[in-house]
Design a binder for these strands. Structure first.
Length: 274
DNA sequence: CTTGTGTCCTGTAGGC
DNA sequence: TGCCTACAGGACACAA
């Protein structure tokens, strides 16, 4: 699933390929992926604009247009953005942006949970409150011991759940939270308030490390993540625990376990993580 | 405010 | 081979 490193990879690739491109028209192939505003306005305000910037905030991807509007994408579980040399579309193309040079930018979303929004600069619709409520990203210099400590030390929830909270750790999802907890040697089921100062400090460093490694390796392709040219990332080959349940821990040879809570699976090594 | 649970959505994997 | 069910999970609504 696209988390910070995957969206960052998409952002970088899009920046070099579509900044300066003119959008001549838009086609919405599945109406419910446009979450805001209504389709008529969505199409009307995008038509005949130029893309002047590509931004990432947490897991959100934004296109800046030259008319002071922003197209906002959230890829959720299986979304991708593909720049195609022609108009050919796939079964899962949900929204297509037709460029003056004949290329298309296609929002592809097999599971149709991803969403696209259009907002004017400064506008903060309630449909998009997640974007305006993001905490710091682990790669930010402000994401340090004091910041994480302040946000979790009085919380009884499991540390894994808090790492997935976008208002605490923007851009972190199931893969990188499992990997960071492994690197820090902390079980996902631990109550946040039980972490020692040393553990919080290790967790901060681990988050930065795994997210940076994910970016460097162009993201993790497990099932649905593809880059803008359809190629995959490489970090799936470097995972320690995610997707490795019942396999041996590379560090200690014990079997990786999976626990379920909060409607998701968390993988961990019972020996390396306390 | 905090925490935990159910829901959305649909392709895929596993069982028989 | 084919049918059926469970599962994957980010964000959010909602209940307690």
């Amino acid at each position: 699933m696209p988390e910070l490193p995957e969206v960052e990879t998409i952002k970088k690739e899009l920046s070099s390929r579509i900044i300066g491109s003119q959008i001549v028209s838009v086609k919405v192939l599945r109406k419910d992926v446009i979450a805001y505003p209504d389709i008529r306005k969505f199409v009307k305000f995008i038509k005949s604009t130029k893309i002047i910037g590509v931004i990432r905030q947490g897991k959100y991807l934004l296109f800046r247009l030259n008319n002071h509007y922003l197209i906002v994408f959230h890829l959720r579980l299986s979304g991708s953005i593909i720049v195609s040399p022609n108009r050919a579309r796939s079964k899962y193309s949900r929204t297509i942006f037709y460029l003056r040079d004949g290329r298309t930018i296609q929002f592809i979303e097999p599971r149709a949970l991803g969403r696209v929004y259009l907002i004017k600069e400064g506008e903060k619709p309630q449909q998009l409150k997640g974007l305006f409520n993001l905490g710091f990203e682990p790669i930010s210099e402000y994401f340090n011991f004091n910041y994480l400590s302040k946000n979790i030390k009085r919380r009884k929830a499991r540390i894994k759940s808090l790492l997935l909270d976008q208002s605490i750790a923007a851009g972190v999802g199931n893969i990188y939270s499992d990997e960071a907890l492994f690197t820090a040697g902390i079980r996902p089921t631990r109550r946040a308030s039980s972490l020692s100062q040393d553990e919080i400090s290790r967790l901060v460093r681990a988050l930065k490390k795994v997210i940076r490694a994910g970016i460097k390796n162009l993201g993790t392709s497990v099932r649905d993540y593809y880059r803008t040219d359809g190629r995959t990332g490489n970090f799936q080959n470097l995972l320690s625990v995610y997707g490795r349940e019942d396999e041996k821990c590379y560090r200690c040879n014990k079997k990786i376990k999976i626990v379920k809570f909060g409607n998701r699976g968390s993988r961990y090594c019972p020996k390396c993580q306390k």
